[in-house]
Amino acid sequence: MSSTELPPALATTVTPRVGAVRVGDGERLRSVGLPGITLTVRSRPASRKGLPPALYVHGLGGSSQNWSALMPLLDGLVDSEALDLPGFGDSPPPDDGNYSVTAHARAVIRYLDAAERGPVHLFGNSLGGAVTTRVAAVRPDLVRTLTLVSPALPEIRAQRTAWPTALLALPGVAGLFTRLTKDWSAEQRVRGVMALCYGDPGIVTPEGFRHAVEEMERRLALPYFWDAMARSSRGLVNAYTLGGQHGLWRQAERVLAPTLLVYGGRDQLVGYRMAQRAARSFRDSRLLSLPEAGHVAMMEYPETVATAFRELLADAGEQPSPSGAGAEG
């Protein structure tokens, strides 16, 4: 089912959402109400009927906007939607305050079940990579292929540059950080985030930087911003400690869908050394290593990621349409 053909159960809960949230050329936003959560979904009109659906899931502190550079490159190939996880982007907090990886995965599953869009080509970055790995493991019927960009899977020795993010999980740290940085401007915060997430922050255009600052100002004004960050960080750390069948690496081994793994050599949050372990763990995987990329390769090198995804589809026997030739990098 395409994003423009919603089942009756969802159609009654869909309303336009624009407001202060940036909407790129050709994009649309809508708000979808589900039990216990409300999700904002960003989509692009399908170029033709019958395209297979794709769903994109962002990382910690991100939003559906993180996929706006990649999605147009896959027009004519998939019917693209990206969601804001509860408490992020333009989605309000979940009613139960649960920001665990399992809760985020449940939100993705609830949306796919309600929208009747599965199976989808599922994309995840960072925290979204952990979430989509769990979705693919527990609901293989919902996933055609899985594309993971710097997935946040457990590391025994995390990089020092990733420690501040993990420290947000500790009770009281988010409040302390808020007080210590109360005089920081949105521009300062954005420069810090970009220095952490990009292999080369210099590739960000002045327009892109301005949009990021505007989005940062909007998020900082939200009363739940730091709570969502802290609780999601705590949820990710807790997921790292789970063993047995609920462990993320064990679940990676259960993923049946053909999987594309994308790792950046300059990633300061997910260790580049984890790429080989991931390639061994996902049974049907191919690895794209980008030595100059940081943590958000789909924003830094969208053409390269798009080309790798097309190759994934070809390897999986799903030949891309000639109309998707714009994805060549």
Rank of each mutant, 00 (worst) to 15 (best):
W249L: 13
L168D: 00
D96K: 06
T205W: 07
V14S: 02
G128W: 01
T181P: 08
V143D: 00
S185V: 04
H58Y: 03
R48E: 13
P154T: 07
L6F: 10
E300T: 08
G317T: 12
Q188T: 13
P154N: 05
G317E: 05
Y56D: 00
L112F: 12
T178L: 09
L34R: 14
L180P: 05
S2G: 15
T102V: 12
G19A: 06
G326I: 13
E292S: 14
T165E: 04
R234V: 00
A316I: 01
A293D: 10
G202E: 11
L260A: 04
P94Q: 10
L269H: 03
T205N: 05
S285R: 13
G24S: 11
L34D: 05
D284R: 15
G76Q: 12
V57S: 00
G89L: 01
D84T: 03
E300V: 03
Q319K: 14
P223R: 10
A152T: 03
I109Q: 09
W226V: 00
P140A: 10
V270W: 04
T165I: 15
D95V: 12
F282V: 00
R231S: 07
R110L: 13
P302M: 10
V101R: 03
R48K: 15
L220H: 12
N238G: 10
A11F: 10
A169W: 11
R117D: 02
F123C: 07
V149A: 09
R110W: 08
V204H: 02
S126I: 06
R219V: 04
Y272P: 12
W67C: 00
G199M: 04
W67R: 00
Y99W: 13
T15F: 09
T4P: 04
R191E: 06
G329M: 08
A257I: 11
L148P: 01
G243I: 01
